[in-house]
């Protein structure tokens, strides 16, 4: 009799090996949403552009910020946040939405988490072009430079982080349907308490420790900084990697214990 851990690891391995399936599913998800529309997935880009361009102007003026500094900062932050937030909220429904398929064909369960991640990374790639005009116009402070080479690393770390915590959230939400609602309201709050619209410098010095306690601050930096020409702080990497290590231990325990039960919950 195979142990629960062996089966969980086999599922993780098969989940990666069957990449063709989740590539197709992720692509299909995006296609399905924009079928019969002329712009297709570029509607995502357009709405992101409108949000960022208007918000940048409004909040730049409200906070009396130098637009040269604020516009790239906000754009980088919003793009990264859009990715992280949608990965988390979509993970809540990862298994619930896949229910009908899961009842028909036996596939590795982690495949449905990869599908959520890839879908949102594809959307991010559509959205990211929004920052180009900003970097062209407001280039006194932020510019495209060699730091962009750190972008793939940042995205990779977010993928791993998103996979681990996405799996945890997906399992909990499949079992306790209220958690999905809690996650969705929490994510709104996190948006406001994370430096995305506002800059850490605006916060009084003695609150800065709190800032480091917010893991989303680290995550955002990993992508926002390279996008706008800065190097992410070392601690942002350290915190992210620490969270990945802690999360993966818990996720592995949770997944090996409850993997075979998930199908009965959906």
């Amino acid at each position: 009799m195979e142990s629960k851990l062996t089966k969980a690891l086999a599922d993780l391995k098969m989940g990666i090996a069957r990449w063709r399936i989740w590539f197709m599913m992720a692509y299909q998800d995006i296609q399905l949403r924009y079928r019969r529309s002329v712009l297709g997935p570029f509607w995502l880009t357009l709405s992101m552009a409108i949000t960022i361009y208007t918000m940048g102007f409004l909040y730049g003026k409200l906070f009396h910020m130098d637009l040269e500094v604020y516009y790239p900062y906000l754009a980088g932050g919003m793009l990264t946040w859009g990715l992280i937030a949608s990965v988390i909220t979509d993970s809540a429904d990862a298994f619930i939405d896949a229910g009908p398929v899961m009842q028909q064909i036996k596939m590795p369960i982690t495949l449905y988490v990869h599908r959520i991640l890839l879908r949102n990374f594809l959307i991010f790639l559509h959205n990211v072009v929004v920052i180009i005009p900003i970097l062209l116009i407001f280039h006194a402070h932020a510019k495209l430079n060699l730091n962009i080479l750190l972008l793939p690393l940042g995205l990779l770390l977010i993928y791993i982080f998103g996979f681990i915590y996405g799996l945890i959230i997906a399992i909990f939400c499949a079992r306790f349907r209220d958690i999905s609602q809690i996650v969705k309201s929490l994510i709104q709050v996190i948006f406001f308490v994370t430096p995305i619209m506002w800059m850490p410098q605006s916060l009084p010095e003695h609150y800065h420790t709190l800032l480091y306690l917010n893991p989303f601050y680290s995550l955002i930096q990993l992508v926002r900084s390279p996008l706008t020409g800065f190097t992410p702080s070392l601690w942002a990497y350290e915190i992210t990697i620490a969270l990945i290590l802690i999360g993966s231990t818990f996720a592995l325990w949770l997944f090996s214990t409850y993997r075979s039960r998930i199908i009965y919950w959906i």
Partner: peptide, 29 residues
């Protein structure tokens, strides 16, 4: 194992017949 449990399951209405063939085939590995 080849399960034929519910024929209509997994047929996506917005996609063409041809696309549905590709989807089903991919899912079967």
């Amino acid at each position: 194992v080849s399960p034929m449990l519910n024929l209509m399951q997994g047929i996506e209405a917005e996609f063409t017949g041809l696309e549905n063939i590709m989807i089903r085939g991919t899912m079967l590995g």
